[in-house]
């Protein structure tokens, strides 16, 4: 699924990486716990999280996660944006709950990691 499609399904706004919306994701993982995120296979992955601090992006950088959806109407900080830009990370902001966002994407065919 293209990120542009993800944005459409979630009614999300693109706050970083507008030029990369044709990127494909096949799997998604949802967590506010970075300890968990650091243990998963990140190929073609979309991360959904409500955790908005610099470590969300650092964790993604280290785990090679390139695509993030911030849920629950949380906003990214300028520091997060800076690191995301540096690492070619796409960030979408959406005002759905984590459960609703996951439900919509699961129904649309994104696969769980496990």
């Amino acid at each position: 699924m293209k990120l542009s499609k993800v944005a459409e399904i979630l009614n999300a706004s693109v706050v970083c990486g507008k030029e990369n919306l044709s990127r494909e994701v096949t799997h998604a993982f949802a967590s506010d716990l970075m300890s968990d995120v650091l243990t998963i296979d990140s190929r073609n992955l979309l991360l959904l999280t409500g955790l908005t601090n610099v470590q969300t992006i650092r964790t993604s950088e280290m785990a090679d996660i390139q695509n993030i959806v911030i849920v629950r109407n949380k906003k990214v900080t300028p520091e997060m944006l800076e690191i995301a830009k540096e690492n070619d990370i796409v960030i979408l902001e959406c005002n759905y709950s984590l459960f609703r966002a996951c439900g919509k994407l699961f129904t649309a065919g994104l696969e769980p990691v496990y």
């Binding site: 716990l33 300890s35 968990d36 650091l38 243990t39 969300t56």
Partner: peptide, 15 residues
């Protein structure tokens, strides 16, 4: 609060 503290780090390092 920063998203850590699940007690998974050391075993993840080992893995």
């Amino acid at each position: 609060e920063m998203g850590f503290g699940a007690g998974m780090g050391l075993s993840n390092i080992k893995n």
